[in-house]
Design a binder for these strands. Sequence first.
DNA 1: TGTACATCAGTGAACGCGCGTTCACTGATGTAC
DNA 2: TGTACATCAGTGAACGCGCGTTCACTGATGTAC
Lengths: 241, 241
Amino acid sequence: MTGMSAPRTARARARAELTAEIKEMARRELAEQGSAGLSLRAVARELEMSSSAIYRYFASRDELLTALIIDAYDGLGDAAERAEVRVERDDFADRWFAIGRAVRRWARRNPHEYALIYGSPVPGYRAPQDTVGPASRVGVLMADLLRDAAAAGALGPVGSAGALAPKLAADIAALREWVFTGVPERYVLPAIMAWTHVFGLVNFELFGQYENVITARDQFFDHALAALAAALGLPVRPATV
Amino acid sequence: MTGMSAPRTARARARAELTAEIKEMARRELAEQGSAGLSLRAVARELEMSSSAIYRYFASRDELLTALIIDAYDGLGDAAERAEVRVERDDFADRWFAIGRAVRRWARRNPHEYALIYGSPVPGYRAPQDTVGPASRVGVLMADLLRDAAAAGALGPVGSAGALAPKLAADIAALREWVFTGVPERYVLPAIMAWTHVFGLVNFELFGQYENVITARDQFFDHALAALAAALGLPVRPATV
DNA sequence: TGTACATCAGTGAACGCGCGTTCACTGATGTAC
DNA sequence: TGTACATCAGTGAACGCGCGTTCACTGATGTAC
């Protein structure tokens, strides 16, 4: 996941370990202060090293933040993939449920990391290019699922909203050359919507919008997943929690 | 909106004006720094007054933040209401579109205020009770729309997801005694989902998740609104942008 | 209408704090011969 | 296997900055009689 091969020398091993420790401690700080309150000095203090020593591992606070963001995307991606891969390949609705639930579970367990990647952008921080791969993993997983379902002829009808605006049709065409290869055209927009909806649900739950509105959070989320599966054309069995 | 009656004395008038100026300047700072970077001293500096003077108007940074949050909810609520009220009362789909588009337009015009209320919670900040009224205005507007449509017999069928879990059914019952009065049971969950989805769409657009995914933002949003209207049981005419 | 007193707005200095980043330096680890 | 040199990790002091909040004070505005 780190992209490094096994370190040879003791020095390299120590370096890898300390890099990991710094990130781990930064994650803990993040959980207490939020991304804006993440401070190199606090991390160093907690690790009982001088603040300047951190600079041997991360060139700046932004670079540490970037590392945390990538790790967060990868953590979420791993969680979703691990959950999805355990499901029977041809139970497409179950695969959908597995992805959705894994996303929510990970987000509830790592709320500050989730906020880091799906909350308000960190002011003054501009995400570098290396985040886009990790950032797309959940979406890719959903697209893969649709491709498999389409190949198996398991996709049912989806509501049509009439003719599409040309610009939007072009977006869909582009998507079908990339993540949505092999997915019939009419399933692409429902997929983007369902993807958006899943994170919208998690956002609202984590950021407090369901306070005084929904108390049966698990059941509501599962209900929504079932409705989304139907909107995606996936064959849904009656949901049981 | 401020809840104050017309100020009598010159002093009271000056006070009201300066309070507004402080908030206005704070909003401008917010737009540049984000909520975590909002500083009383910076606001004071910009207003060419001493930092301690701010304390005559707001007891603390948190109190200023609360005022901004309430104003943001009210700004969004006003925008949505003003847009919705201009539509023919019995064109229910149009009313839905008006609300959704107004939310998005306001969010795009006031991205930092939007992030303040729908983004990651401000670390260490706990929203006081006075925010819940303003926070619910858009939801109330949607519920009102559904009530009107139901009364007019204009609501079509919605997808049923089978029997509901008891806890979830209880939530719905509670909602129907409060905001969703007069709205038939089966439309409540689709409404919560549609409400969630609208803000999920705006979140994803504003927070950068559609980068490299959707370029036709207006058309995509309208498409989603149309799909949501259908999911809500609202009578949809073919969408034109 | 004028006066005495109370209330309020605003100031400037200070407290105590934390931050990111740089730099010259020491001592340990790794590498080449 | 031993030695000379280069590389790296970590330190501590310093720079320059900004922050929220408090406090004793001055001068203006409002109020009651």
